[in-house]
Design a protein around this nucleic acid. Structure first.
Lengths: 206, 206
DNA sequence: CCAATAGTGTCTGTAAGACAGTATTTC
DNA sequence: GAAATACTGTCTTACAGACACTATTGG
């Protein structure tokens, strides 16, 4: 049963824009926040299929173009400048995901040292970075870039990389501690006093 | 010059979803945060035309369906459940705008007393309310629901309506004061000490 | 012992909320 | 003067940042 409007036309009889899904895959590599770029100049993306959710399309991009599965893409915004794509009228629903660097094989570029990107992908990366910084402001590594077990120093390095600035050691400890569980083990790493090993506390829902 | 893919097809040869634009028009009426509903059960909306920006479509909705012009719709998110619209595959790009009640003539419904709405419009209203509450957390009436001149009590009533909870009077004053300019005049209203009349300070960009 | 890293105690400044006080108007 | 509203002073609490100190390892 196909819906028709008063003039007998279906929705498909009206011209409408194409919808793309682009994903800014962020990670921390060498203590720097990086983004995965295709051919060094564009975010991975695809066209949304007609019976597919945005989430499914974003996961398909992650699988086919970045080689990762089981991630958690988040919608950022729709980019809709009519001139943004010279192939025609294409809306892009931008997404972001934070993925541990070990699960990526494609080339990465630090976000504070981006080359000019195709389309409006620079703006998408900016929005993705802003989202990531917000997510990492209060909670310990919410997207699991380290872990599952880690020392506070390891956690702090990841947060500093995402936020792009150094953090005070003592305040960072105190802010994170309530969200961490002490595993009881000690890191037997290099020189210095061994550090306690923590794990993220299960998220609390009030 | 029309772009064609390697098999000679244009973008329009692939089936793609329709794109709708729905707008949650919020206002404060009788000290309550309200939303404008069409026929008491749906947000005003339209289909995005192929050469139109989302902002233009949202403004068109505001003009044609809510009778207001010159507003500032903000994009919230894309709602994309494949079953959300039984006329076919329709994505909705949800928007929010806050408009002074004097400029609206359509019927309003308090957001904490909503009837069941069509499609997924309840979720859109929820997102719109969350956006408005965030916007009104720190700054005095950023969308100009009162004004341009107002007393602190008038300002506080609007904030309480948007946030849906009472605010402590003294803390509210102190938080807002740095963003306000004293006009020098006094409100010669009813009983009680006359209140100073303020105006929003121009936004500061750091 | 020294170097290096881990972890804590304490001080200062800021801001929110609670509370109560003072100030100025209408009636 | 009473009632109502406007405004302010101050106390407590909480938390961030700064700073310095103690603790525990390898060499």
């Amino acid at each position: 049963m196909i819906w028709r409007d008063p003039s007998g036309r279906t929705l498909a009889d009206y011209p409408h824009p194409s919808v793309a899904v682009d994903v800014a895959v962020l990670t921390v590599a060498d203590d720097r926040l990086c983004v995965l770029l295709h051919e060094g100049r564009a975010l991975p993306g695809t066209f949304l299929r007609i019976d597919e959710t945005l989430r499914a399309a974003a996961l398909r991009v992650l699988r086919d173009r970045a080689g990762v599965t089981g991630e958690e893409p988040r919608q950022l915004a729709v980019f809709d400048d009519p001139e943004r794509d010279d192939r025609g009228r294409v809306l892009s629903v931008a997404h972001v995901d934070l993925v541990p660097v070990e699960r990526l094989d494609s080339p990465l570029t630090p976000v504070d040292d981006l080359p000019p990107l195709a389309f409006d992908h620079t703006a998408i990366v900016d929005a993705a970075v802003a989202w990531a910084r917000d997510a990492y402001a209060a909670l310990p590594d919410p997207r699991g870039l380290v872990g599952p077990d880690f020392t506070l120093l390891e956690l702090q390095r990841v947060h500093e990389a995402v936020l792009g600035r150094p953090l005070p050691k003592d305040t960072f400890r105190r802010r994170m501690q309530e969200h961490l569980i002490d595993t009881g083990t000690l890191s037997r790493g290099s020189v210095g006093k061994p550090a306690r090993v923590f794990r993220r506390a299960p998220r609390e829902y009030e």
